[in-house]
């Protein structure tokens, strides 16, 4: 067993329910008893949903898939923070040992103009896919590659590119930002490719296109409050935003 030592919690949950994108939503309150501290936050939701189905009520819709913190699908806004109270974890990796007996937990969907609610806690993040489609790649068709070791990459550059590439595209950065800005997400991809030799050919064009698409999707401006970095489950650094700003200036000057 884990360090929960079999402790059980009684909880009050206030969960956002919304029938569909057009409906007006509201909070619904549920009581949960005997929640093991070894459970993950989503397993606690499984228990709640089983309870609801048993009572003949529709289960709460929420996005989740890998439940190991890497797919980026889970997206709950818990007590005013994306992915909850613990730093550097996704909702699926948050465990109930982070809560206390008799806690009230408020759970909402990501809230952003660019992420409309689909149902309950599920939002539409396809804007991120469109930003990647606008330029978040190296244009290399399959079969055109030279031997991988012909491209030498200094380890520090490779490590920095990797750190930026660790972004899971969950959207917590947007959800936590008072402006609903997607700068951290976009800058992570721009940085990854700007740091690597493979990304140089399209370097200027890429940043211009991705930023243009970001603006068209309705994301807000960055005012350097840093909430995105603080809430990012993968600890993507604000340095990426600074780097993207430099890339933008470089690209605009020609």
């Amino acid at each position: 067993m884990g360090s929960g030592n079999g402790e059980l919690l009684n909880l009050t949950l206030k969960v956002w329910r919304q029938k569909n994108s057009k409906a007006k939503g509201s909070f619904e309150t549920h009581q949960l008893k005997g929640i093991s501290t070894d459970m993950s936050f989503l397993e606690m939701f499984d228990v709640l949903n089983e309870q609801l189905i048993h009572e003949g009520k529709e289960a709460i819709a929420f996005d989740h898939d890998c439940r190991e913190g890497i797919c980026g699908m889970c997206s709950m806004y818990i007590n005013g923070r994306p992915h909850g109270p613990k730093g550097a974890v996704t909702t699926c990796q948050l465990h109930m040992r982070s809560f206390k007996n008799n806690d009230t937990i408020v759970v909402e969907p990501w809230r952003s103009v660019a992420f409309p609610v689909i149902k309950d806690l599920v939002v539409d993040r396809s804007a991120f896919d469109r930003i990647v489609a606008s330029g978040g790649y190296v244009s290399v068709n399959t079969g055109n590659a030279k031997d991988a070791n012909n491209i030498l990459i200094p380890k520090p550059a490779a490590d920095d590119a990797f750190a930026a590439a660790a972004c899971i595209g969950c959207g917590a950065c947007v959800a936590t930002c008072k402006n609903g800005s997607a700068m951290l997400f976009v800058s992570a991809k721009v940085s990854q490719l700007a740091l690597l030799p493979q990304g140089q050919v399209e370097r200027k064009e890429r940043v211009l296109k991705m930023v243009q698409q970001m603006d068209e999707e309705g994301f807000g401006n960055c005012t350097n409050t840093g909430a995105c970095e603080a809430e990012c489950p993968k600890e993507i650094s604000l340095e990426n935003i600074a780097r993207m700003n430099r890339e933008m200036i470089g690209a605009s000057l020609k």
Partner: peptide, 16 residues
């Protein structure tokens, strides 16, 4: 080869 060409950041040694 293909993945490296795409910019996949695979682990590197100090010599690159």
């Amino acid at each position: 080869d293909q993945c490296v060409a795409q910019g996949v950041p695979l682990a590197r040694e100090y010599g690159g």
